[in-house]
């Protein structure tokens, strides 16, 4: 039964969609975590996914992750593209037998009628070159729209996942547009109220999209960003070195933060268009080396099962 209050109704409000997913996955035994407090390109970067998917310990978590993709900014003018958006991330380790069914149930919970809509699992081999991670799975389509990413992690930070985690990533704005029947992301009803009390997605985020697009594409100081990249890289290496030596690694998490920073600096530089196709590869490789080293350090911590 959908909640009577439209501010909690997944088909009537953006926040209702999020809350429904939170409740659904809490019922499946997931820890409901909060977003990571750093700029990341995707929910996968959250240490609750990247690092927790390494090592033998079982883990189930779900959280919203604000994700920044500087290059996708469109000055608030494109109905589908945002440089900042929300992902809903679920990580289940080891992947349960009925993960596909759980996923479909979660769609039903937010109001997708499987008798009316064409839901499909379309091959999509996921790979994060910067994280040194890959997995096999699908993009999940609802009437031709990609609403989620479904992945069985095989490798993260260059290490084989044992056991394998199942990762679900919902594109919340797209999914909300779908269930609300809205063509423009800025028209999404955020709070489910009507009239004066109605707050749209645009009310909350349009100005930010415009401002950040200016920053991402025109004004971000590339010299500073190049320096940020170098600094984060150096700090990461230094922390990894200082934390090593003992039986356990002592600073895997702070080191990994620096890896995230380097990755975001790279994304901004990429959006500024100052990195050529040829050079791109070498930057990606540099972040991957950091991610791998952080993964190795994590495996030598208690959380990593050491």
């Amino acid at each position: 039964m959908p909640p009577a209050d439209s501010s909690l109704d997944p088909t009537k409000s953006f926040q209702g969609l999020i809350l429904t997913l939170q409740t659904f996955w809490a019922r499946q035994g997931c820890l409901i975590l909060q977003p990571y407090d750093m700029e990341v390109g995707a929910g996968t970067f959250h240490p609750a996914t990247t690092l927790r998917s390494l090592g033998p310990k079982p883990w189930r978590a779900a959280y919203v992750q604000p994700s920044r993709r500087p290059k996708d900014g469109r000055y608030g003018e494109n109905p589908n593209r945002l440089q900042h958006y929300y992902q809903y991330q679920v990580i289940l380790k080891p992947s349960p037998e009925n993960l596909q069914d759980l996923y479909l149930e979660s769609l039903r919970a937010i109001g997708v009628d499987m008798g009316l809509h064409d839901v499909r699992f379309v091959e999509d081999d996921w790979e994060s070159p910067t994280l040194g991670a890959w997995g096999l799975g699908w993009e999940c389509w609802c009437d031709g729209m990609e609403v989620s990413q479904f992945t069985y992690f095989q490798q993260v930070a260059g290490f084989e996942c044992a056991p394998v985690s199942g990762e679900l990533t919902y594109g919340l704005e797209r999914l909300a547009m779908y269930v609300q029947g809205v063509e423009n992301v800025y028209d999404l009803n955020f709070n489910g109220r009507e009239g004066e009390a109605r707050v749209s997605y645009g009310d909350v985020f349009k100005q930010a999209e415009q401002e950040y697009s200016r920053f991402n594409f025109e004004h971000a100081d590339t010299a500073i960003l190049f320096q940020h990249f170098k600094d984060a890289e150096a700090e990461c290496r230094s922390l990894l070195e200082r934390g090593a030596g003992g039986e356990r690694h002592l600073m895997a998490l702070p080191a990994y933060d620096q890896c995230i920073k380097a990755s975001h600096a790279f994304n901004l530089l990429d959006a500024r268009g100052v990195i050529s196709v040829t050079e791109r590869q070498s930057y990606i490789l540099r972040v991957r080396e950091l991610a791998k080293a952080c993964g190795a350090a994590w495996l030598k911590t208690a959380g990593g099962g050491a």
Binding site: P94, S95, E97, D125, L136, Y152, Q154, A162, P163, V164
Partner: peptide, 11 residues
């Protein structure tokens, strides 16, 4: 061409 492990057995 590409294969995978899954679930508890994947350890």
């Amino acid at each position: 061409p590409k294969s995978m492990r899954w679930g508890e057995a994947s350890v």
